[in-house]
C-alpha cells in the first residue's frame, strides 16, 4: 500500500496532468483534502475568511476605526446601534478596528515570515549542498540564533530600532531564519546523494543548476508546512509586541495593542474589549495550526515533532 504522502503527491500530479485546467485540478485536490482532513479544511476556511477581511477590510468596515465617538464610550455589543462588537474607551468601533487589525496582523506575519524563510532557504540549501567549512559556518550561526529566546530577541531588535511596523517585520523574519535553514538543510543532505542528482551531474549540469532545479524543488513540502506553522507563531509574536507597546504605533489598530492598557483597566465595566481581540487572535492562530498539522500529515508525516 502506498503511503499517505505518496498518495497525496500522486493525486496532485494526476489532477494537474489530466487536461483539467489548473483551477479544476486545484478544486479537485481541495475536495480530496477536505474529505481526508476536515480539520485542515476548517483551518483553510478560517484563513480564507481572514484573508478576505484583510484584503477588502477598508471597504467592508461599518465605521471609521479611528473616529472617536464621545457619546458612545464603552458601548456594549449591540446589533441595532451599529456597534456590533461594542466600542472602546474612546468610543471607537471595535468591529472596524478588528477588521483593520486583521490587515496589519496578517500582512506583517506574511511579509516577515516569507522574507525570513527566503533567507533561511538560501542558507539551508547551500549549507546542505556543500558540507564543508561553509556548512559548518552556517550551522554554527544557526545554533547561535536558536539559542536566543524568540520574544526577547524580537524585543531587543524592536527596542534598538524603535517601535514601528517595519521593525516588527525585521524581527519576525530574523526569528524565522534558523528553523528554515535547519529543515531545508536536512532535506538537501538526504537528496544530494540520490541517483537522479548524480545523473544530472553526469550530464554536465552545474552546481547552481542542480541546486535550484533538482534539489530546491524537493524542499517544497517541508517549507510549506513550516511556513504555515510559522505564520501562526508570527501572529502571536506581532500581537505580543504590540501588546507591550512595541508594535504598530497608536492610534492605528492592532489586535495585540487593543488588549493592552485600557482593555484591562475597563475589564470590569467593558469586558468585551478584552475578549474580542483575543478571540480573533486565537481563531486565526487556530486556523494556521490546523492547516499546518493537516498539511504535514498529508504531505510529509516524517516531520511530525
Amino acid at each position: 500500500m502506498a503511503s499517505q504522502p505518496e498518495i497525496a503527491a500522486d493525486r496532485l500530479r494526476r489532477y494537474s496532468g489530466t487536461g483539467l485546467s489548473t483551477f479544476g485540478a486545484a478544486i479537485r485536490w481541495l475536495w480530496w483534502f477536505t474529505k481526508k482532513k476536515p480539520m485542515g479544511a476548517i483551518g483553510l476556511f478560517i484563513l480564507t475568511f481572514a484573508a478576505i477581511i484583510a484584503v477588502f477590510g477598508p471597504w467592508l468596515i461599518p465605521h471609521d476605526p479611528l473616529k472617536i465617538n464621545s457619546k458612545d464610550l464603552l458601548h456594549g455589543p449591540q446589533w441595532v446601534s451599529g456597534f456590533v462588537l461594542g466600542t472602546d474607551h474612546l468610543g471607537r468601533d471595535n468591529m472596524s478596528r478588528l477588521m483593520i487589525g486583521a490587515r496589519s496582523s496578517l500582512s506583517i506575519a506574511i511579509i516577515g515570515v516569507s522574507s525570513g524563510t527566503f533567507v533561511g532557504f538560501f542558507l539551508g540549501l547551500y549549507s546542505g549542498f556543500y558540507p564543508d567549512w561553509r556548512d559548518a559556518t552556517i550551522q554554527r550561526f544557526v545554533d547561535m540564533l536558536m539559542a536566543l529566546p524568540i520574544l526577547v530577541l524580537a524585543l531587543a531588535i524592536v527596542a534598538m530600532l524603535g517601535a514601528s511596523t517595519r521593525n516588527v517585520i525585521i524581527a519576525i523574519s530574523i526569528i524565522q531564519v534558523p528553523g528554515t535553514a535547519r529543515i531545508v538543510r536536512s532535506v538537501v543532505l538526504s537528496v544530494r546523494t540520490m541517483e537522479y542528482v548524480q545523473a544530472a551531474r553526469a550530464l554536465g549540469a552545474t552546481d547552481t543548476r542542480i541546486i535550484w532545479r533538482h534539489v530546491a524543488t524537493q524542499t517544497f513540502a517541508p517549507v510549506m508546512i513550516l511556513v504555515t506553522a510559522a505564520l501562526g507563531i508570527a501572529i502571536i509574536i506581532e500581537a505580543s509586541l504590540s501588546f507591550l507597546g512595541l508594535g504598530t504605533p497608536p492610534p492605528n489598530p492592532a489586535w495585540g495593542s487593543m488588549l493592552a492598557g485600557q482593555a484591562r483597566q475597563h475589564a470590569e465595566d467593558a469586558p468585551w474589549n478584552a475578549v474580542f481581540p483575543g478571540l480573533c487572535l486565537a481563531i486565526t492562530v487556530f486556523g494556521f495550526n490546523m492547516l499546518g498539522d493537516s498539511l504535514r500529515d498529508v504531505l510529509d508525516p516524517r516531520l511530525r515533532t
Binding site: S240, L259, A267, P271, G278, V285, N289
Partner: peptide, 21 residues
C-alpha cells in the same frame, strides 16, 4: 489546541477578567 492558539497574554487577561467579575 486552545492552549496552542491562545496567546498567553490573552489567557492572563481573561483570568484577571473572571476573577474580578
Amino acid at each position: 489546541i486552545g492552549g496552542l492558539a491562545m496567546p498567553n497574554f490573552w489567557v492572563a487577561t481573561l483570568m484577571l477578567l473572571f476573577m474580578v467579575i
